[in-house]
């Protein structure tokens, strides 16, 4: 009985971090990461419209106090921005494959 109780407590403790509610600090960190990736894409002149709109959606959700939604949108925006940076980097050489010669 005592052993079961201990295990249950340990399990509860181990789950605690993932179960805690997303807060403003999480949102701000996720947004900052997305914004940094987005700025890198813009510097490369290869911003995607979807990055901009998803980043705006993250801000709107964050401003409205929906931190779960805000973090999810910020992470999506960051992924989009990173994909556009990858595209710009790989296309520096890859464009030649399409050239008419």
């Amino acid at each position: 009985m005592k052993r079961t109780l201990t295990l249950t407590m340990l399990l509860a403790l181990s789950l605690a971090p993932s179960a805690r509610a997303t807060n403003e600090a999480d949102y701000k960190a996720a947004y900052a990461a997305a914004e940094a990736a987005s700025k890198e894409a813009a510097t490369m002149r290869n911003q995607w419209t979807t990055t901009v709109s998803t980043l705006a959606a993250a801000k709107k959700a964050g401003d409205g106090g929906d931190f779960n939604g805000a973090v999810a949108a910020a992470k999506e925006a960051e992924a989009l921005a990173k994909a556009s940076v990858f595209q710009a980097t790989s296309e520096k050489e890859a464009w030649k494959a399409m050239e008419i010669r």
Partner: peptide
């Protein structure tokens, strides 16, 4: 200009040439 024409961009990963050459 040539490089811009053939470079894929945007989430759809299209270049000008994707539509107007291919």
């Amino acid at each position: 200009g040539k490089r811009y024409f053939y470079t894929r961009r945007g989430q759809l990963n299209f270049s000008c040439a994707s539509c107007h050459v291919q």
